[in-house]
Amino acid sequence: MAPRTFHIAAIPADGVGHEVVDAGRTVLDALASDSGGEFALEWTEFDWGSDYYSRTGRMMPEDGLEQLQDFDALYFGAVGWPSVPDHTSLWGLRLAICQGFDQWANVRPVQFHPGVLSPLRKADQTDLDWVVVRENSEGEYSGLGGRNLSGRGPGNEVAVQSSLFTEKGCERIMRFAFDLARKRDHPKVTSVTKSNAQQHGMVLWDEVFERVAADYPDVDSDRCLVDAMAARFVLHPEDLSVVVASNLHADILSDLGSALAGSLGLASSANLNPERRTPSMFEPVHGSAPDIAGHGIANPIGAIGSAALMLSHLGLPAPAARVERALGAATAAGALPPDLGGTATTKQITATVLDHL
């Protein structure tokens, strides 16, 4: 029987995105070749990003979403370069894809890898493993607002940035989080809010959470203010299983989680359209790192972990688990990049992962 072929769009974009996407593709291609005919991958690479912007004035073509629509998944590198303002590069490519494809669930596991030194002392004696589920379509990153009154002269311009919270947006991400929690050893969902100070959108968030939680009596639930949750990540991370939060809060907290695990270079993520009306996108969250781009020392672990998330989304849980085990074996064997205190290059880490597949 012919293998099932998945069509994947690769968008390395900027900086170290090229190096880590290449690493992830190398691992995935090796896995497909060794799958005994279970699956095959067909790649199409797009040269969109800051270099494309310098040539065209756009981060991607006007019909970029149409070009991507029929792919099974998108594999993304990193966006951002000193020659392009950050808000231009982010909104012109990554957020344009996430919002254009309604990839409303962003999943960011916080994983503590063997052999990786965590700055968190508790990690030495406790098994820690939690997931941050981020509302990825509205909230603080809705893009609503504007800048006005510049005609009044220097120092008089006004900027308004509005957050958007809808019952639909809150409810669907919360149900996603509860459904995910049911699959974990510790079925618990913690909602992060700031409703004591943000009395409109965040109070709506709280109300929806209480209503949704009532439909999941088999899942523990609690609520926590975002500032207290930042402390809880450090002081009581063993209490966490699934953390659900708004776009901004989950963005910040997930980076904190990855730093506690050892480095942002470890952080994988999935931008999902759970209804599968559009392709989902998988990416590391470490950024384009212009200072080390091209030096061959970028940490590929987050990108390879994102490749495992992509395999799971494509209905290939066993190959995804192989990748996760190989990553753990590679870090346990000492294949660590400079951001984790090691000396291994991107290619050396990739080769060690391949050895352990």
Rank of each mutant, 00 (worst) to 15 (best):
75 Y>N: 13
333 A>R: 12
197 A>H: 05
84 V>C: 12
288 S>A: 06
189 V>L: 10
342 G>W: 08
56 T>R: 15
24 G>H: 01
275 E>T: 03
340 L>E: 09
268 S>T: 14
205 W>Q: 00
188 K>N: 12
241 S>R: 01
28 L>S: 14
287 G>N: 04
335 A>Q: 02
264 L>H: 13
81 W>K: 01
125 Q>V: 15
265 G>I: 02
28 L>N: 13
223 R>K: 13
151 G>T: 13
139 G>F: 06
244 V>T: 09
72 D>R: 02
155 G>S: 03
247 N>C: 11
29 D>I: 04
347 K>S: 15
203 V>G: 01
27 V>D: 05
154 P>S: 08
277 R>Q: 13
321 A>F: 12
49 G>M: 12
114 P>T: 01
165 F>A: 12
58 R>P: 11
155 G>N: 03
317 P>W: 01
69 Q>M: 08
335 A>G: 04
51 D>P: 15
298 A>N: 06
151 G>I: 07
302 G>W: 07
181 A>L: 03
301 I>V: 01
97 I>P: 09
189 V>Y: 07
60 M>F: 08
199 Q>W: 05
163 S>K: 14
235 L>I: 14
300 P>R: 09
355 D>Y: 04
132 V>C: 14
227 D>C: 01
240 L>T: 12
228 A>W: 03
97 I>E: 14
202 M>T: 07
226 V>T: 05
71 F>P: 14
144 L>T: 14
10 A>E: 09
223 R>S: 12
68 L>C: 09
172 R>H: 10
160 V>L: 11
118 S>Y: 00
52 Y>R: 08
141 Y>L: 04
149 L>W: 09
56 T>G: 15
80 G>I: 08
93 L>Q: 06
205 W>D: 02
196 N>Q: 05
321 A>E: 14
34 D>P: 14
338 P>W: 01
314 L>M: 04
313 H>G: 10
97 I>C: 08
174 M>I: 10
311 L>H: 15
194 K>W: 00
329 A>I: 11
36 G>Q: 05
107 V>Y: 09
131 V>R: 07
